[in-house]
Design a protein around this nucleic acid. Structure first.
Length: 465
RNA sequence: UCCUCAUUAGCUCAGUUGGUUAGAGCACCUGACUGUUAAUCAGGGGGUCCUAGGUUCAAGUCCUAGAUGAGGAGCCA
């Protein structure tokens, strides 16, 4: 028998092998009992549920059992039996217990009672051992897996786009610099500016804010691709919806117009939500009970309802007619603020909304210009509670049009020569979008703060662990 | 970055109009209990009231500045 030999608690609880000897390993959640018998709730992270270990005090001794308290890690060999208690189908009558690691009860920070999410963030090294956080992590895994499954089943190829980039032309926010220069004494040019020709790459380099531009290069060869990787924004954003380091999914598809793009986005989101409802039932029920009483109802609703689709122009008309005093004025050409988006999703339509055809001035250079010359084929998917969960567009594939737009916005053309060349050689209509993975998880788990759906959040002034 | 609020025991939080020795629940320790279910019951230990100034006979409480956290806004995914 090797060290890894054990039955996972999720399998023990399926009640398959009653009467047989089993080995369970895990971390003690609580211990209670009397002078004759101790009950140990054991969890190994395979499920939200614990297995109850029953240990006779006469066999194991009071002093030993005292060490098997909250937080300790143990190996238990015993018989799986039907439980006389009402709250669990089976339990393990312990024959032997090996203490892998004790946890001093006076200093172990996790109690059997609940903690605030703020406190748990301060002990991110231990919070995976809580019910809430282990549930979130299992759902996070399930969603990552479902994303790959969805695209793989549809014949999309997973493209690894670079994390270090030499271009900052995408315009999606402030970038983190990557350098090997001595920041206390960098080489300088005659004009006093830092000489990045002497840096590792011979030029300035940054952490990527998006894999989209490279994804487009791949789509214009492999037709259907997606990226799924970390992205970095050095914005000083302090909100429950922003991270400095987050994961993004970016499908990019040749021969898709904006309608196809919207169909893909809606189908994709519904698939993921249905996958969670089907595969993460116990964890979602726990989160529903613990944090968000409307979670399951909301997930079921969004999974089946048809998203509302309308143009930016129509949305502005609705907002202008609305009997609401806006903090930010609404007029054609103004960017929509979260109060406007929330009104459309939560009050007016009461379901997810896809807004399209925004004024070109408030959108990025790569979006395809409409025939009206004023709007671009952009699409934002707005969700209840979250706001913008997806942003995407049909891309400008016309060489003349995209160089004109780049010049208008005074984006340095020489940094994008490779991107522009795809429009020169065998260009094709294509579309894509970006989905923030943690924003998806906020919606699926019902958690209120994005720092609680990623194991180790990076935010301004916070890079512990 | 801006606005608002918060910071008191390991955790969650009370603390009245500025007034004696700062409290509770949980956790922890000791004991009781023949199968518990966030076990229960009894007892015990535990405090730089975020920090630095200030006002006052007297400050956890009022004022100023700062630190940290949270919510809202902006930026966005």
């Amino acid at each position: 028998m090797t060290l890894k030999s054990r039955t996972k608690i999720v399998d023990l609880l399926k009640k398959g092998e009653v009467g047989t000897e089993v080995v369970a390993k895990g971390w003690v959640r609580t211990r209670r009992g009397n002078k004759n018998v101790a009950f140990i709730a054991l969890n190994d992270g395979s499920t939200i549920h614990n297995i109850q270990i029953v240990a006779d005090v006469a066999v194991f001794g009071d002093d030993f059992l005292k060490e098997v308290g909250t937080g300790a890690c143990i190996k238990v060999v015993g018989t799986l039996v039907e439980s006389p208690g009402a709250q669990q189908p089976v339990e393990v009558q312990a024959k032997s217990i090996e203490l892998y690691g004790k946890a001093d009860p006076a200093s172990y920070p996790l109690q059997k009672k609940g903690h605030s999410l703020e406190f748990l963030r301060e002990i991110a090294h231990l919070r995976p051992r809580t019910n809430t956080f282990s549930a979130v992590l299992r759902i996070r895994h399930a969603m990552a897996f479902a994303i790959h499954k969805y695209f793989n089943d549809k014949g999309f190829f997973y493209i690894h786009t670079p994390i270090i980039t030499g271009s900052d032309a995408e315009g999606a926010g402030e970038l983190f610099r990557v350098t090997t220069l001595d920041i206390n004494n960098p080489p300088r040019k005659e004009n006093g500016k830092v000489d990045f020709a002497e840096d590792f790459f011979g030029k300035e380099s940054k952490l990527t804010v998006s894999g989209q531009l490279e994804g487009e290069l791949a789509a214009l060869a492999l037709s259907e691709v997606y990226t799924f990787g970390p992205t970095f924004r050095a914005e000083n954003s302090n909100t429950p919806r922003h991270l400095a380091e987050f994961w993004m999914i970016e499908p990019e598809v040749a021969f898709y117009d904006i309608e196809d793009n919207m169909d893909l986005a809606e189908d994709f989101l519904k698939y993921l939500i249905r996958y969670a409802l089907e595969h993460c039932k116990d964890d979602l029920e726990f989160l529903n009970k613990m944090w968000d009483k409307e979670l399951l109802e909301r997930l079921n609703s969004v999974a089946s309802i048809s998203f509302e689709r309308l143009t930016y122009t129509k949305a502005v008309e609705i907002l202008e007619k609305a009997d609401v005093k806006w903090e930010f004025p609404v007029f054609w050409g103004a960017d929509l603020h979260s109060e406007h988006e929330r009104y459309l999703v939560e009050k007016h339509f009461k379901k997810p909304v896809i807004l399209t055809d925004y004024p070109k001035e408030i959108k990025a250079f790569y979006m395809k210009l409409n025939d009206d010359g004023k709007t671009v084929k952009a699409m934002d998917v707005l969700f209840p509670k979250i706001g913008e969960i997806i942003g995407g567009s049909q891309r400008e594939e016309n060489h003349e049009a995209i160089t004109k737009r780049i010049n208008e916005l005074e984006i340095p053309m020489e940094e994008l020569w490779w991107y522009i060349e795809t429009r020169k050689f065998g260009t094709a209509p294509h579309s894509g979008f970006g989905l923030g993975f943690e924003r998806l998880l906020l919606f699926v788990t019902g958690m209120g703060n994005i720092r609680d759906v990623i194991p180790f959040p990076r935010t301004p002034n916070s890079c512990e662990f």
